[in-house]
Amino acid sequence: MQVEGLSINLATIREQCGFGQAVDLCLKHGITRIAPWREQVAKVGLAEAVRIVKSNGLKLTGLCRGGFFPAENEAGWQRNLDDNRRAIDEAAALGADCLVLVVGGLPGSSKDIGAARQMVSDGIAAVSPHAEAAGMPLAIEPLHPMYAADRACVNTLAHALDMCEQLGENVGVAIDVYHVWWDPDLANQIARAGQMKRIFAHHICDWLVPTKDMLTDRGMMGDGVIDLKGIRRMIEKAGFLGAQEVEIFSAENWWKRPADEVIATCVERYHSCCQA
């Protein structure tokens, strides 16, 4: 039976499965929405990935990821822009709802986070015409402040939405609960995102206490402290009724379990912990 409203980000079982295997497993559990990573697509080839998606009637809630705009020099800057244009083309070929942007942090030995944030804004502006021509929405994913230096210097939903206001209607946000649950202004900013019609994706997992690794110790829904139902209510009230996309990096737990068990648990926890 098809599971409505649930998407699996394929990073959740990336250590156990390749692209085709992961798709087969999702279909076995009634899941027809996925979000692959570009390296997973590259391993099978874009043409084969497109064939798998189309032949199985799959829908991509997003492609991960574009971004990482800041660079130390002009040559690096141009390489980053070119890579984002390729990512846009890949997302369009796969029929993704959006290209998720993990925007990048401080380049090289820089300590100028303001300059890095300007490069992010300038970079998105530079590739936006290509995205619009391809019909591909760009979703800025604000990351938890612990990633400000190395992964994303956009760290609050408010900051991401400020950028969206400057960059046009084709640029919105991916709201990942792992990164924003702590924000005291979250309710207001989700409402603002809804008014702007800029919620393009909703990612779910849980925040464990303690968290043993800031990148690869995300929790399965229900195992941590995030009010998943409460945040989903805010998001639905703001007008976004799209799928909830499970994205779990878990080097010492879920990546070590059988993939079938992981997906079955995602389905069970989606029903018990995540529906508003």
Rank of each mutant, 00 (worst) to 15 (best):
Q2I: 15
Q2L: 12
V3A: 01
E4L: 11
G5D: 06
L6W: 02
I13G: 05
R14N: 13
C17I: 07
G18V: 05
G18A: 01
F19W: 06
V23F: 07
V23Q: 04
L25W: 03
L25E: 04
C26P: 06
K28Q: 05
K28E: 06
H29Q: 15
T32G: 15
T32N: 15
A35R: 13
E39R: 12
V41P: 11
V41E: 10
K43F: 10
E48M: 11
E48P: 09
E48V: 12
A49F: 02
A49Y: 03
R51K: 14
V53L: 10
S55F: 03
G57D: 07
L58E: 07
L58K: 08
L60N: 13
F68H: 13
F69E: 00
A75P: 07
G76N: 05
Q78H: 15
R79N: 15
L81I: 15
L81F: 09
D83H: 09
N84Y: 00
R86C: 08
R86H: 10
I88E: 06
I88Y: 08
E90L: 13
A91N: 11
A92C: 11
A96D: 14
G104R: 02
G108P: 04
S110N: 00
K111C: 04
I113M: 07
R117A: 08
R117H: 07
R117P: 05
Q118Y: 03
G123R: 02
G123K: 03
A125E: 13
S128C: 05
H130D: 13
A131C: 12
E132F: 06
M136Q: 07
L138K: 12
A139G: 09
H144I: 06
R151K: 06
C153I: 01
C153F: 03
V154M: 01
V154W: 01
H159F: 14
A160M: 13
L161Y: 06
L161H: 07
D162F: 12
E165N: 07
L167D: 03
G168Y: 03
E169T: 09
E169V: 07
V171I: 02
G172T: 01
V177L: 13
V180W: 09
V180S: 09
N188G: 15
N188W: 14
I190Q: 03
I190G: 05
G194M: 11
M196G: 05
F200R: 08
H203R: 03
I204S: 06
C205P: 10
C205T: 10
D206F: 06
V209W: 03
T211S: 08
D213N: 14
D213R: 08
M214C: 11
R218V: 10
R218I: 12
V225L: 02
D227G: 00
D227W: 01
K229R: 00
R232M: 01
R232E: 02
R233D: 12
I235W: 10
E236K: 12
A238Y: 11
F240G: 06
F240A: 09
L241G: 12
L241Q: 14
L241I: 10
V246A: 12
I248K: 04
I248S: 00
F249K: 03
N253P: 04
R257E: 01
A259I: 01
D260P: 08
D260M: 09
I263R: 11
E268A: 15
R269K: 14
Y270V: 00
C273N: 13
C274W: 04
Q275S: 01
A276Y: 05
